[in-house]
Design a protein around this nucleic acid. Structure first.
Length: 138
DNA sequence: ATTCTGACA
DNA sequence: TGTCAGAA
């Protein structure tokens, strides 16, 4: 092992392309405290750590977590390398998210049911009017 | 050409 | 988060 090329860096445009997001989004995440790239003057230099964090951010988004929640989970990874408390929080977040989705699922089911009731009710009313028109129109 | 910051018909 | 501006 001569020289460990672990010092690989990424430019903002490069990361944006790799993750399919805009450079604006990447800077936005930084403003929210999820990313803290090094600087070369004004230019942002992203290292392996930022790359990993961005990957975690994208996964969190896919699961429906807010940026604040994602920041909480990721920050613990830094503070607690043992990952014990991080896993603890993560599990809690997953359960909360699952409950939230189930709650939404119930709301949707109720709305769907109400839609069905209204439709059948309207269909009946329509059928009734059409039959009456036939009789009184004579 | 690319990135940065700040602002918002 | 998009977009546009003005500067570096």
């Amino acid at each position: 092992m001569a020289l460990d090329q672990t010092q690989q860096t990424f430019g903002i445009a490069e990361l944006a392309r790799e993750f399919g997001i805009t450079t604006r989004a990447i800077r936005f995440y930084e403003d929210k405290g999820l990313l803290s790239p090094a600087r070369d003057g004004q230019r942002r230099i992203y290292g392996p750590r930022d790359h990993v964090r961005l990957r975690l951010i994208m996964r969190g988004k896919r699961l429906g977590f807010s940026l604040d929640e994602i920041r909480e989970m990721i920050d613990l990874y830094d503070v607690d390398p043992t990952e014990v408390s991080q896993l603890k929080l993560f599990i809690g977040k997953l359960q909360a998210r699952r409950e939230q989705l189930r709650s939404q699922q119930e709301d949707i089911a109720e709305t769907l049911a109400e839609l069905d009731r209204l439709e059948t009710q309207s269909q009946d009313l329509l059928a009734e009017r059409e039959s009456r028109r036939g009789k009184s129109a004579r």
